[in-house]
Design a protein around this nucleic acid. Structure first.
Lengths: 189, 189
DNA sequence: TTTTCATTGCACACTGCTGTGCAATCTACT
DNA sequence: AGTAGATTGCACAGCAGTGTGCAATGAAAA
């Protein structure tokens, strides 16, 4: 069934979130299913993780392109992006840990297009003088949204307080002055 | 020999840095030694990693306590800390990745005292109004020095340019205004 | 009822690691 | 030369995980 497949994916996200090294057996039993059944849907562990990653990339790039459509300032766009991407990032936070390790390369490849979009946004901000330039756009964007993931990871809930703090933190490290940062997140509910 | 033991430790840092999942065999051959010999010095893989971690903690706490002795402002202390800890952080950057995974708990335990010292410094800065308070000191300190590690990780060399950028970035996210941040790192050669 | 399809249960082969035992070898020191 | 200590080479046991094959079961649709 498709229902089983979806449940496996959902549960896999939780299980891998707690322990990125969890095996197919762990995922299976957590999904109330036998290991063999998982292999029925996903030929290999890599397939499972790839599917998970593709899901995350699709959702996130969707949000980013949508937010990018507006011609607002880069910092305001960043705030709207983080606000809308937060639940997704919180859900898929495990991918941050999974980027290192066995399947790191595959994940990295899938995340590539998203990374580029992010770097473009940050570069636009740097060109506009909104973001600081102490790091190249490629690195700065990575580190900034890495911080968002990290805070999402250390946050137990996916409620707004964590999101707000993560947004402010990322804005600060992008070089946005604290006053402006606070004003921006105040705008965005 | 003690010489062999030290070489194993040094090489292990490199090998694990490239691939945190590297096995005892990989480390052994990289050290120009047979796997059995490694087990002669370190009864288990955990022992090796624990030794590595203890080394890192010793060096880093040494730097931090030394720097903390001065009664300078928290942000200036932070700058001096990062500047002096940078080569060490760069060398032991793999521990960041190793904190997740099998031995995460052991490493976390060893890193505990260092974490507390860092949190204390950040809290001092927050109380003094030098650092922002959008995050509790415990989280903020972790994220800030996590960023330093992350940049150290993405940095090919351990030369000063990366260190300078990492310091500015961490200062920004601690809530230090960009102008002050630049002035501070300018001071410190 | 018959057909179809997902799931189950079990067995199996394979891989790659960890950790140990032990005799042989090499090297430095006496 | 002789001795002690480190290193080597190899064999072995064990474990945990992956991926596969196949017959049996169950349930829902025709």
């Amino acid at each position: 069934m498709n229902e089983t497949r979806d449940r496996i994916l959902d549960v896999a996200l939780d299980v891998l979130g707690e322990n990125p090294d969890a095996g197919m057996g762990d995922i299976a039993s957590a999904a109330g299913v036998v290991r063999r059944t998982v292999y029925g849907h996903f030929p290999s562990r890599l397939d499972l993780i790839r599917t998970l990653t593709e899901r995350a990339v699709t959702e996130m790039t969707g949000v980013l392109t949508e937010v990018n459509a507006s011609d607002a300032a880069a910092d305001a766009t960043w705030v709207r992006f983080i606000a809308r991407v937060w639940p997704v990032a919180h859900r898929y936070r495990v991918l941050l840990a999974l980027r290192r390790g066995e399947y790191g390369e595959a994940i990295h490849g899938l995340l590539g297009p998203l990374d580029e979009l992010l770097a473009d946004l940050v570069e636009r901000g740097q060109d506009g003088g909104v973001f600081a330039q102490h790091l190249p756009a490629g690195v700065l964007s990575q580190v900034a949204y890495g911080v968002v993931f990290a805070i999402a990871d250390s946050d137990l809930s996916n409620r707004t307080p964590g999101a707000r703090a993560a947004t402010i933190t990322s804005l600060l490290m992008l070089g946005v002055p604290e006053a402006r940062a606070v004003a921006l997140v105040g705008d965005q509910p």
